[in-house]
Design a protein around this nucleic acid. Structure first.
Length: 796
RNA sequence: GCCGAAGUGGCGGAACUGGCAGACGCGCUGGACUCAAAAUCCAGUGGAGCGAAAGCUUCGUGUGGGUUCGACUCCCACCUUCGGCACCA
């Protein structure tokens, strides 16, 4: 038998699969009912030019599931696409020259070649790319639908501004508060930005967690991010101005302890207060300084600062006047931008009160009972929350309220390489959406896409000026582009109908394939992509474009792959590209190893010794399966149960359960190794051929090339279409088992016992054991615990 | 501070519903093959102690308690590491 040559075998079968379109899947015929379909999806890659090990883990895992489900008879959709808009290509173009489109398309070609080298079962007819006008046309179309529904709006919001480069920076371009490129201190500047009204779905996003099978930690991260808190909105009156100022609090029980009142510097009332204040100059200065700071700077300040306005509000519980301060520890974008300060029971308020000599009043004692709280004194804090709120409600001074930490999603990017926003600004009509018929608004081919004080598209005069679709008058286009997370918030819907030029997708096809049955991707997207996509689907559901509320039924996060074992770092500068590794060890070895090294959802280390071990296993498999074939040329499996056939059936059961139910991918490889080890002890033993075929069949989802080659050498065809093997229950049953004998819970002996034996027999055998007798040492057995088929525990 | 996850040999890990701790692999040790090396194959490999040997004893899953005939697994407290949120009122 010739030696195992992974490179040749892998090229051979990749051609066969492509020629036979083995892993392309047809859309359902009209009327075809869902049920035997499976949508396997991994997060689409940003085409950076090279695959890294994280991709290899992600897509190999998806590949194993794809093969497994296909061979279980399901119709599996497993597409691939490119998240191809975004900063890196644009930055590379600025740095190295060239155009982001050229760079992106070159990268896509390269990464696709690397993907093909690893032999993943992908339907390449369904490829989509975010930067393709045929795709972003529908991103724009969806934007218009959201706009019509009032779920997209424009408001002034702070951006990161580099005063030196005269440009807006993305968050990831701000390093420790400084511009990544020039090092200048980044400022907060207000600009008009587009927002998705995701906060309108805050409750739905929380509640619908119960509909989906996601890791608890991911749901927890989203819960944290959404940050729902229940409390009350209370009204504090400023008589002089004849206004009621609402505050949000989670502690209405402490309202009797509110001894002062604080407004955020951005609070709309502050301007009026400044005019009235005897300390107008000081206030104005304070507000200006506070507003120039970025959020992190304000949070990082050592000392709480603020200025007294000279005005008073009325505490609705005590009716006492309390002073109004402006302080930057109160944030405008949480709650109402105003707080009742309770220094007795809030650490921040206490620090502030101590610094400025404000009164501190205790209203809840150590036992959690109210004190100094009028008729509520004596109640527990919990009781008081309800009672005080009810009382204030009757007086028109309060009501229950819920607050969220979640903010609306600002998606304007002052960048070139993104999806244009289909909006024009008309001198007469204002903000006008581009009509659907005029989509796509094409991203123009500009020469200079450097941001310089205004978004790059704003410099393209020819493109910028357009006729107003409504009145025909002069108008300018929106020059910001969309955040790339908009592109990826609906891509999973486009895969079902990627060439449709009449609609983003056909509802019938979405109904058939969606929701995604299994989604795989990094947990780093928990508060981004995974939240945005859920929001999008909820809106699309309400628009009747889809008929479900959650896009991803089951979710799995692959762990981080660290690469830097000692050998590797010395000899090859720490990182070897996956396609190089495939050339060195074979794609099958790389695929197997990345799943063998540990549980797929935990961090793992790639080591060269490890992949060498797997390559060794594959050579062993090759040799032993070859030996078994020569020893047992008859392709019919041996009819009689044997040690090997039992082991094979056990392995089928373990692997199927691990992949199918437990969703673990390392232990099935160990199980197949055990089978191969057993076979290797005597490749001519009865059942050897069946064991060999089983090992090959079970390893196919992981190592499809070598499995296919061995399968054909075993005289069969098209392993990728073979039904997944099913364990024969009768061969899993045992007539005898190893009875574990414990004395006081410690193992003292093991004897062969029959499954027929009664509990009394087993106890008798246990007691009869010489080793047990030595342990008993004449003591009396008080109790015997029998676990049938497993053990006897004698208690003395 | 709040929320979440995880701590098992020299290393990666296995042990799923409480029932033989360390599967499988790496590494290491010894042997075979070889002029030699690589590759390959065979055997051994948690610690300590006893034994000439077969083998036996004992300790052992972050720490301390608890529940149980029996705990890596369940409960309580704590320690450490990692991740998320964080002037969030």
């Amino acid at each position: 038998m010739e030696t195992y040559d992974p490179k040749a075998i892998e090229a051979k079968w990749q051609h066969v699969w492509e020629d036979e379109r083995a892993f392309y899947v047809d859309n359902p015929e009209p009327g075809e009912q869902p049920g035997d379909d499976f949508y396997m999806l991994e997060m689409l890659p940003y085409p950076s030019g090279n695959l890294h090990m994280g991709h290899v883990l992600n897509y190999t895992l998806g590949d194993v599931v794809t093969h497994f489900k296909r061979r279980q008879g399901l119709k599996v959709l497993r597409p691939m696409g490119w998240d191809s808009f975004g900063l890196p290509a644009e930055n590379a173009a600025i740095k190295e020259g060239g155009h982001p489109r050229e760079i992106t398309e070159r990268n896509i070609a390269n990464i696709e070649r690397q993907m093909r080298r690893l032999g993943w079962a992908i339907d390449w007819d369904r490829v989509i790319a975010a930067h393709d006008p045929a795709y972003y046309r529908w991103t724009q179309w969806l934007f218009l639908k959201f706009f019509e529904k009032g779920l997209v709006y424009r408001k002034e919001a702070p951006v990161n501004w580099c005063p030196n480069d005269q440009t807006v920076l993305a968050n990831e371009q701000v390093i420790n508060g400084r511009c990544e490129r020039c090092g200048a201190v980044v400022e907060s500047r207000k600009m008009e930005q587009w927002f998705f009204r995701i906060t309108a779905y805050a409750d739905a996003l929380l509640k619908d967690h119960e509909l989906i099978d996601w890791p608890e930690r991911t749901k927890a991260i989203q819960r944290n991010w959404i940050g729902r808190s229940e409390g009350a909105e209370l009204l504090f009156r400023i008589d002089e101005l004849d206004v009621d100022v609402p505050v949000f609090t989670t502690r209405p029980d402490t309202v009797f302890g509110a001894t002062f009142f604080v407004l955020a510097p951005e609070h709309p009332l502050v301007d009026t207060l400044v005019e009235r204040s005897p300390k107008a100059e000081e206030l104005r200065k304070y507000v200006r300084t506070a507003m120039a700071k970025r959020g992190e700077e304000r949070a990082a300040a050592d000392e709480r600062t603020g200025v007294f306005t000279g005005l008073y509000v009325t505490n609705p519980a005590t009716d006492a006047p309390i002073p109004v301060w402006v302080a930057d520890y109160v944030l405008m974008d949480y709650g109402t931008g105003a707080i009742m300060a309770v220094p007795g029971h809030d650490e921040r308020d206490r620090q502030f009160a101590e610094r400025y000599g404000l009164p501190i009043r205790e209203v809840v004692d150590e036992d959690g009972a109210l004190v100094n709280s009028g008729q509520f004194t004596g109640l527990s804090a919990e009781e008081a929350k309800r009672a005080i709120l009810e009382w204030l409600g009757e007086r028109g001074r309060g009501r229950p309220a819920v607050n969220f930490r979640l903010r609306d999603w600002g998606f304007s990017r002052q960048r070139y390489w993104g999806c244009p926003i289909p909006i024009v600004y008309c001198e007469r009509c204002g903000i006008v959406p581009v009509p659907e018929d005029n989509l796509p608004v094409l991203l123009p081919e500009v020469e200079d896409f450097r941001p310089k004080g205004k978004p790059p598209l704003a410099s393209n005069e020819e493109w910028l000026h357009a006729a107003c679709p409504r009145c025909g008058g002069p108008a300018v286009r929106e020059a910001d582009t969309m955040d790339t997370f908009v592109d990826s918030s609906w891509y999973f819907l486009r895969y079902v109908d990627p060439h449709n030029d009449q609609a983003p997708f056909e509802r019938r096809l979405v109904d058939f394939w969606l929701p995604v049955d299994q989604y795989v991707g990094g947990i780093d997207h928990a508060t981004g992509h995974l939240l945005y996509s859920r929001f999008f689907v909820k809106v699309l559901d309400e628009l009747d474009l889809v008929g479900f509320r959650e896009p991803f039924q089951r979710l799995f996060h692959q762990g981080w792959v660290r690469q830097g074992g000692s050998k590797m770092s010395k000899s090859r500068g720490n990182v070897t590209a996956p396609d190089e590794l495939a050339d060195m060890y074979g794609a099958d070895a790389v695929r197997l190893y990345i799943l063998f090294v540990g549980p797929a959802d935990q961090a793992m280390d790639w080591t060269e010794e490890g992949v060498e071990g797997i390559a060794r296993f594959l050579r062993r498999l090759w040799r032993i399966v070859g030996e078994a074939r020569y020893a047992s040329p008859d392709p019919q499996p041996d009819p009689e149960p044997s040690l090997l056939s039992r082991k094979a059936h056990e392995t089928i059961a373990r692997v199927s359960d691990d992949i199918g139910r437990r969703f673990v991918f390392n232990t099935p490889i160990a199980a197949v190794m055990e089978l191969v080890n057993e076979l290797g002890r005597d490749p001519a033993a009865p059942g050897a051929r069946f064991a060999a075929e089983t090992a090959v069949s079970l390893i196919q989802p992981y190592a499809p090339h070598v499995a296919e080659e061995l399968w054909s050498r075993l005289g069969h065809e098209r392993l990728w279409e073979q039904p997944w093997p099913v364990a024969d229950e009768s061969q899993l049953e045992r007539e005898t088992f190893e009875l574990v004998i414990q004395v006081n819970g410690k193992v003292r002996d093991r004897v062969e016992a029959s499954v027929q034996e009664s509990e009394e027999d087993l106890v008798a055998r246990a007691t009869a054991s010489a080793r047990v007798q030595a342990q008993l040492d004449g003591r009396e057995v008080r109790q015997a615990i029998v676990v049938p088929g497993k053990l006897v525990n004698l208690v003395v």
